[in-house]
Structures are given as structure tokens and as C-alpha cells.
Design a protein around this nucleic acid. Structure first.
Lengths: 220, 220
DNA sequence: TGATCTATAAAAGTATACTTTTAGATATGG
DNA sequence: CCATATCTAAAAGTATACTTTTATAGATCA
């Protein structure tokens, strides 16, 4: 079963933790600590952490690996990339009409609605990630898919920050619903258009959220 | 002076060799062999090779690291990416009007013309790479720049294959000249337009070249 | 002959040990 | 009391040694 190396397994495991939001901005990932917890030596853990760093998931500091700091400029740059790539990718995914991926998108959207009803932010986040993974998996152009996935960690982090706001969650839920409709129809043009709008709205929601002044300053 | 690690130095050195075309499709890069030649241990070399693999410069086989095989499909996918990203990137670079980068582009274009006059294919390749590096360095969006650089190794390889043909070299030389003119003017729209055309022509030239059965080289 | 099995050596992968760098603490001087 | 220098421990980085995997050559047999 274990057809791949420790390095790869550990890489995937840490990546899953990152995408699940289990690691916060203050946490420090240290190879020998993780290695001890996993019953392996430093080297495969170290190599997994280096790989995650090259992929943009982590930053290497002299005192452990940590989440990269998302400066407003960097966030803006990623939104520029998203607007360049994701509409085209969505069009290709819509053309592909992969039944399995469509089913995954439907399931994710249901989970999203349920989480929204319960006010379960963590579950909402997981569902949004599932939806994104599903449509990305349907993109037939592997190079394009890879380019998008390389910055997806940052997308998740931004979304995580934005989603603290209930209004932003509602915006995301509505956006994903219309996106799914476009994918269901297999209409490439509609999918591209919807995706462009979705990313645009996400950027606006994030900007609005980020512009909010820190409450404690006023409260005092 | 040696402010960075062995790993980073070795990574840069191997990368330079790859981009200079010193490693052929039959060569195999093996960590302990390279390490012996450099007077270091396997580990920093191994990590540099892994990093280059994650960046798309190499493929890891069970018998050493080698150039990735460029299937026609993969080449087509990279051209799709290029057409999505590089026109916008060129527009941003043109707006930036970086004098130093412009100077580098001029120097590269001169070297290119000289190499073309001498029929020196290797020098032509180096000059084309210099030009690309110069305008990419002028792109102010670091995320966009990074996304482009991640597939640049493949661009170089494709260009290397295409450039065996003198007609293709002439096409490239003309394309870079008009590109430089657009950059000089600082006209974002013109730069985007020229870049789109350049990538389109590169794809056409490659398709034409790849369609050739064997070096049954037809004059002109 | 040729197909399959087996032995082997090369390279990846992992473990352990040692060295260097550096953030933060503590000490020292103005 | 602040600024600067020094010390220290933690983590990155590197070296060496050991283990596992696998492509290939050679052996065995139909």
C-alpha cells in the first residue's frame, strides 16, 4: 500500500493540516519535533518542509517553518493571477463535463449550505475547499492546474481570514451556487464569466474585510 | 561572502548549466557524483536536485535525474499558460520602465544579432535567455513573475529544440526586436499585444518544426 | 531461440551524528 | 536607563553511514 516515500506521505499530511487551518500564524513547524511525533528521522520531514516552502505553503525562518505572511500587496498579486488563470481554467473544466467531479461539487455545495445554516465556520471552510478541489481536478490542462494549485494555499488562507464575516460567507455561498450551475450546463463561456465574477467578488469582499479597522483600537 | 547555503549555490549552478544547454536528454545527474566533483556531501546536492525537480527543471527517475520529456501535449499546455500570463506580465513590465532592465534587453538583443550573424546557435540561445530574464525581472508582480519562471525551464528547452532551424531564429530575432521597441516606449498595451503575437509565433514555429519528419532540412 | 526468473550493483531513501548560524537572553559599559 | 557586546540554546545545515528499491545483466528452462 505504502507505495511512496515517507517524504511524500509527510508532505501530503502537513499540507492537509495546513489546508484544514490547523496551523496558525504563530505556530512553528520544526523538523525534529514533527519527526519525533511520526516516528521517523529528521531528513524526510525536513525535505517535506522544504518542498512545501518551494510550493509557497510555508516560509523558512531561522527558527522553524511558519505560514507565509500575507502582505496586502501579495494578496493583491495573487488576485491578479487568479483573474488571469481561473476563468480560462473554469471554461476548460466545464467543457470536460466530468460526472464524478460534478457530483463532488454538488456534495460540497450541500455541505456548504448545511454549515452555513449551523454557523459552523470550520465546516464551511472545508466545504469551500472541497468545491475548489473538485473543479480544479476537472481542469484537463495539467500545467494550468499546477500553476493554480501553487498559489491555492494562499487562497485558502485569505478565504479563511475573510470567512470570519457572515456576510462574506453568504457571498461565497451564492457565488459557488451560480458557478455550479454553469459547470452543470457544461457551458464554457458561462463558466469563465461566472468564475471571473466570483474572483472579483472575493477580492472585493476581502478588501472590505481588510479595510475594517481593528476594533480594540476604537473600543478603548 | 558565502551568505547562502551550499544547497542554494548548487541549485543555482545546476540550473545555470541546464539553461546553458550543457545537459542533454541522455545525461543522468546523480547526487553523489556531482557531490564528489564539488567537494561536498550528497545531501545539499540531493536537496538541490529535488528542488529543481519540483520547479520542473528535472524529472526524478530511479536511475538519476534527467531532463523532463516534453510530450507534445505538455508543450501545448505550456503555450496555453504563456498566452494567459505573458501578455499581462509584459504590460506591467512596460509600465515599470526600469532603465537597468531596458539596458540589459538592448545588450541581449545586440548579442542576439551578433550570434545570428555568426551562426552561433549556442550564443543565440544564451542571448535569448538573457532577454527573457531581463524583461521578466522588470515585472513588478512577484507572484506573476514566479508563476512564469516556474515553466521557463520548459520554454528554454522548447526554444532550444526550435532554434536548430535558422528560419525560426530569424523569427525570434524579429519578434524580440519589436518587443523591445514596445518596452522602450513604455506602452503597456503595445507590449501586451507584441508579446501575445510573439508567443503565438513561437508556437507556430515550434509546431512547424515539430511537424518535420526528420532533419530533412528544407532550405528556407 | 526466447521467455522468465534471479542475482547484483547503482541509486534513491532514510537514519544518525556533527557543525554552523542566529534569535533571544544576559551581561557589561556609558 | 539605554545601548552595545557577549553568551547560549535551538534550529538549520551538512556529513557519513546504513537500508530499500529497481533497472539490467546473466542464468535457467521450455
Amino acid at each position: 500500500m505504502s507505495r511512496s516515500s515517507h517524504r511524500q506521505r509527510i508532505h501530503d499530511e502537513i499540507r492537509a493540516r495546513l489546508l484544514a487551518g490547523e496551523i496558525g500564524p504563530e505556530d512553528r513547524l520544526v523538523d525534529h519535533v514533527l519527526a519525533a511525533g511520526m516516528g521517523v528521522s529528521r531528513m524526510p520531514v525536513r525535505e517535506a518542509l522544504l518542498q512545501l516552502t518551494h510550493e509557497g505553503y510555508l516560509d523558512s525562518t531561522s527558527r522553524g517553518f511558519a505560514l507565509p505572511s500575507l502582505s496586502p500587496q501579495r494578496v493583491a498579486e495573487v488576485f491578479t493571477l487568479r483573474k488571469l488563470l481561473e476563468p480560462h481554467a473554469a471554461a476548460l473544466a466545464a467543457q470536460a463535463r466530468d460526472p464524478q467531479r460534478l457530483q463532488e461539487m454538488r456534495a460540497a455545495l450541500e455541505a456548504l449550505a448545511a454549515a452555513q445554516g449551523r454557523g459552523d465556520v470550520a465546516a464551511f471552510h472545508r466545504a469551500a475547499e472541497s468545491f475548489r478541489n473538485a473543479w480544479l481536478a476537472a481542469v484537463p490542462n495539467a500545467e494550468l492546474r499546477g500553476a493554480i494549485q501553487r498559489y491555492s494555499a494562499q487562497v485558502q488562507q485569505v478565504r479563511f481570514a475573510t470567512m470570519a464575516d457572515a456576510a462574506a460567507r453568504a457571498t461565497i455561498a451564492r457565488g459557488l451556487a451560480v458557478l455550479l450551475a454553469a459547470f452543470e450546463k457544461g457551458d464554457a463561456l458561462a463558466a469563465a464569466d461566472r468564475m471571473q465574477r466570483f474572483v472579483h467578488d472575493a477580492e472585493a469582499a476581502h478588501a472590505g474585510f481588510a479595510a475594517e479597522p481593528v476594533p480594540t483600537r476604537r473600543a478603548r
